[in-house]
Simulated scan of single mutants.
Amino acid sequence: MLRASLPTWRQIAAVELYTVVLTWILATLTRQPFLECLRHLVPVSLAQLAAYTAATAWQPRWMPLSLARLIAVAVMAPFAALAMIALPRYGRAAAYLATAQGAGSVVMLTLIALVFGLLFTAVALYLQRKERERQAERERLALERDLLDARLRLLQAQIEPHFLFNTLANVLVLVESGSAQAAPVLRHLIAYLRAAMPRLTDADATLDTELQLVRAYLELMRMRMPDRLQFAVTVDPALHQLRFPAMALLTLVENAVKHGIDPSMAGGKIEVGGKNDGGNVALWVEDSGVGISESAAPGTGLANVKARLQACYGNSARLEMHEAEPQGLRVELHFTKEPACLQSQH
């Protein structure tokens, strides 16, 4: 309690700097010696600072803290002024205070201490309130980031089994059909999963790591249907270091293979692209498969991608689906380059 009632060195330094400036102004206006004014004002300001901190430690429950501080500073002003006028005169203090000059000195010093002490206290209270508001805002933002990360982890956990089971189902089709490609595809799948699994829960995943997974997945699918699948990945390199929800783009590519290329007898091509237009980012996955009539119904995967994108980039992020020409489906992701979950630093 005692330690809490004592001013800090930072408070003392701030008050004394303020006192020196005030003394210089008063000495200039009244043509009084600077050191004489300083000798009176420094102890008074320190006494008021002590009252300010004491009110902080011993605040009455029935009174707001800011009011208690103002009252303490105001009450201390006449006592500190009287002490500064009387103490240097020892036994002559009573006689001096009985004179007009002595009483006038006490009144003048009290008024100065009251006016400027209360002014300084009001400024200090305002700055402290603004600092508390900034601290509360920082805590709110930190809590929002924690909630956002938790939401992203939850959404990501939903998509991981979906991806894994779909990929294993593709391998199972090859095995059951007795395809000679089954063993090579399985080996590539094992190698792919060994490289991919550590990234699936990476909180700092970037678009670059996502594109690596997309290319690996498409290579794997091309081994399964070499005559029916072609692909191209052309994304602006300036976007590679953006933080991006892991497996969001991969989910769109999966859907393009499963709902666009697989049902088509002739197969088709998948194009993965991205561009940045003045901070507005557009990513897309376009296939030339069976088209929007058979593949456009939004499922869990697309809803998950949209939710994760909005969790990362805000509610303005959106997912759009369009018919491709001459046939096929184009799925686009749009968001601004300044994400709510911050850009990864690389």
Rank of each mutant, 00 (worst) to 15 (best):
E160N: 09
E131C: 02
G104N: 14
R243T: 10
I190F: 07
M321R: 12
L229G: 00
A93S: 15
P60N: 08
D208W: 11
A216Y: 04
E131Y: 00
V171F: 08
R215K: 14
I12Y: 02
T251F: 01
G260E: 00
A86L: 07
N315L: 10
S177P: 04
V20Q: 08
E325Q: 11
V233R: 00
R194S: 12
L333A: 06
A122L: 12
V272D: 00
I261D: 01
R199T: 09
Q327R: 15
S66Y: 03
D277V: 10
R39L: 12
T23I: 07
P298D: 07
I190G: 06
W62C: 09
R243V: 10
E144K: 09
E131L: 03
L127P: 02
L70P: 00
L26F: 11
L207N: 08
A100E: 08
H334R: 14
G279N: 10
A94Y: 07
N315T: 12
G279A: 11
T206L: 12
A282H: 10
Y313G: 06
T209G: 08
E36W: 14
A93E: 06
I292M: 13
A80F: 02
M221I: 01
G102P: 00
A122T: 04
K275N: 12
L141R: 14
S45G: 08
A232Y: 04
A195I: 06
D149Y: 13
M223D: 00
M1A: 14
A248M: 06
Y96I: 05
W9F: 12
M108L: 15
A98D: 10
A13P: 01
L38Q: 11
I112R: 05
L67I: 10
F79H: 03
G289V: 02
L118A: 11
R215L: 09
E219F: 03
P88F: 08
A54K: 01
E325L: 09
D204R: 15
L329M: 13
V42S: 15
M321P: 00
R61N: 11
A296I: 04
Q11P: 01
T19G: 06
Y126F: 06
V106Q: 02
H188E: 03
G273T: 07
Y313T: 10
P326L: 09
R61D: 11
A303I: 03
A340Y: 08
R31E: 10
Q101S: 13
E176V: 14
L309W: 02
C312D: 05
A317T: 05
A51F: 00
V20M: 13
A113K: 07
L17W: 12
W9P: 01
V235F: 08
Q241S: 15
V175A: 15
L17N: 07
I261K: 01
L154E: 02
Q230G: 03
A282E: 15
V44S: 04
R330V: 00
R138A: 15
M225D: 04
V44F: 07
I112T: 14
A100Q: 07
L249T: 04
K306C: 02
L207H: 09
M225C: 02
L41T: 08
Y126D: 03
L49T: 02
L309D: 01
M265S: 13
L229H: 01
Q345A: 14
G279Y: 07
L41D: 04
H259S: 06
Y90Q: 15
